[in-house]
Design a protein around this nucleic acid. Structure first.
Lengths: 260, 260
DNA sequence: CCGTTTGTTCCATTTTTTGGAACGTAGTCC
DNA sequence: GGACTACGTTCCAAAAAATGGAACAAACGG
C-alpha cells in the first residue's frame, strides 16, 4: 500500500458529516498504527492538504484542497450548459435543481440551484449519496452496461430506505424501466417527504455523464404540478441532448472505449 | 523526496490560469522523468485527486478535491463572522469585499462579496496573489514578526507593480506604517485602476489570521467616498476585534506559540 | 503525584519509489 | 509503405522511503 493510498484513505475520512477529525478519530477510522498516523497527518498538514486548528488540534481539509476544489471542472462545458438550462427550469417551476456525477455506486452533488419554494436545501455540493436512492442517480446508472452496474454496486447490498430498490434484482428492474420509459423519479427515499425527477446526460464527445434532477416536497405539490415538472424535464433533456450530442443508445463504456 | 511531496508538486501546478494540464505540461513544470510523471499521474487519477478528460487526455483536479474543498473551513467561526459583517458593509457601500488568508508570502482569496457597483470581479475564490501587492495582504503581513516576514518573502524579491513596495526595505517601511496607523490601502497595484483598503483580523483563541478588504475603482470613487470606506472598515474592524477577541498587540507567533 | 490519554520519535526491516532505457502506439511526412 | 517523431508506458536493479512495535514525552485529571 503506497504512501499516496494511505494519504487518500485519511482524506476520505472527511465528509460533510465529519468536516474535522482528531488524531484519534483518524487512527480509528483508518485502523493504522499510531506512528503511521502521526507521520502521515504531519505530512498532509505540511503540504497543505490538511490544516490543523492550533487550538483544538483537530485536522480539517487544507487550503490546497480549497484551491484545487475551485478549479475542479471550472471549465466543463457539459456541466456549464446543463447548469444554465437547469436555472431556467428552476426559475419557472420554483423547485430546487441538482446536478451530480457518479463515483462508484455513489453520486456526488456538483451544483445546486435553489428554487423559490421554501424547501430547505438538504444536499449541499460535495454531498455523497448512494446513487440507487435518487432519481438522477438511478438515471445515471441506467446508462451504464449491466456488467458495469454489477461491478459498482457492493456485493453486500447497502441498507436503503423503504421506497428504494431493496436488492440488486429490484434495482435492475427499476433501471430497466428507466431505460424503457426514459423517466426516473423518486419519492420519500433519501429524504422523507421529498420527491424528485431526474435524467442522465452524456456528452457525445467526452463521454462524461451527469445526472440532473428537480426536487420538491411531495406534500406541497399536486400530481398536476409533478406532471409539469416531468414536461419541463423532458424538454430540458431533449434540448440538452441535442446541444451536447448525447448518444442515447450507447452505454458509457462504448463511448469512452473502456471496459472498466 | 517522498511520494506525497511529488504528488503535491504536481497538484500545485494547477492554478486559475492553468486549470488543466497535459502529461507534457506536468513533465515540464515538475522537471521529473517521464516514467515518474506517468506513474504519479496515474496514481493521482486512480485515487480521485485528478481526473483525466477521456477526449483530450488532459488532467484536471478531481472529484475528491471538489469534495474536500467544500469542507474546507466550512465551520470556521472567524471566517463566518467576518463574512457576515463584510456583507453588511458591502451592501451599504456598494463595493466588493474580499476575505483572504496568508500562505507563505502569497494570499489566497477565500470569500468574495460582490458589490452592487459594476466593478467586475477579478479575483475569484482560490486566486493566489503575492500578499505584498494588496491592502489586506500587507495588513496580514504587518501582524507577523519581522523575523517571520523575512522568512516568508523570497530572497529573490518578486517583480511587482510600480505602486507596490519594490524591495524588502520598502515593504518593511510600508508594514511599519500599517502597524503605526492601523490603516492599509492600495491603489493601481495588483490590478490597474483598482484600489482597496483592508485590515487583518486575528482570532484570540485560535490565532488564525485573515485579511479583509474593500475594493473599488479608483476613477469611479471620490476621496470622500474612500474616506467613507475607511470609516466603515474601521467600524467593522473594531466590532470584529471585540467579537473575536483579537489581541492586536501580539504577533501571530506569540499567539500560536510557534516559532516557524 | 500517579495513572491516563494523547501523540511523537527511534530504528531495523520491509516495501515503494526511482529513473534510465527499452518498448509500444499513433500520427505525419515523403 | 516506411522512416521519423511525439507521446506515453513498462521494466528492472539500485536507492530511498514507509512501516510499526516500543520507548519516550507532554498534557491532563483527580
Amino acid at each position: 500500500m503506497s504512501a499516496l493510498t494511505n494519504a487518500i484513505d485519511i482524506l476520505r475520512c472527511f465528509s460533510t458529516s465529519r468536516p474535522d477529525l482528531s488524531f484519534a478519530d483518524v487512527q480509528v477510522l483508518t485502523g493504522k498504527p499510531k506512528s503511521s498516523t502521526s507521520r502521515l497527518l504531519r505530512s498532509l498538514r505540511d503540504c497543505g492538504l490538511l490544516e490543523q486548528d492550533p487550538h483544538t488540534r483537530r485536522y480539517r481539509p487544507g487550503l490546497l484542497t480549497f484551491e484545487l476544489g475551485r478549479l475542479h471542472r471550472a471549465h466543463d462545458d457539459l456541466l456549464a450548459t446543463a447548469e444554465r438550462e437547469l436555472r431556467d427550469v428552476c426559475a419557472r417551476t420554483g423547485h430546487t435543481g441538482y446536478i451530480a456525477v457518479l463515483d462508484g455506486y455513489q453520486q456526488v452533488v456538483l451544483r445546486i440551484v435553489p428554487g423559490s419554494n421554501p424547501l430547505r436545501v438538504v444536499n449541499p455540493p460535495g454531498q455523497r449519496t448512494p446513487a440507487i436512492v435518487t432519481s438522477n442517480g438511478r438515471a445515471m446508472l441506467a446508462r451504464l452496461s449491466d456488467q458495469d452496474i454489477r461491478a459498482r454496486v457492493p456485493l453486500d447490498y447497502p441498507k436503503v430506505p423503504a421506497n428504494s430498490p431493496q436488492n440488486f434484482t429490484e434495482l435492475m428492474a427499476r433501471l430497466n424501466e428507466i431505460r424503457r420509459t426514459g423517466v426516473s423519479d423518486a419519492a420519500d427515499e433519501a429524504i422523507e417527504g421529498v420527491g424528485s425527477q431526474g435524467f442522465a446526460l452524456a456528452s457525445g464527445e467526452s463521454g462524461e455523464l451527469i445526472g440532473i434532477a428537480i426536487s420538491y416536497s411531495v406534500q406541497a405539490t399536486t400530481e398536476l404540478e409533478r406532471a409539469n415538472v416531468r414536461r419541463e424535464l423532458g424538454a430540458m433533456a431533449g434540448k440538452l441532448r441535442r446541444m451536447t450530442g448525447d448518444p442515447l443508445g450507447q452505454t458509457i463504456e462504448q463511448l469512452t472505449g473502456l471496459a472498466s
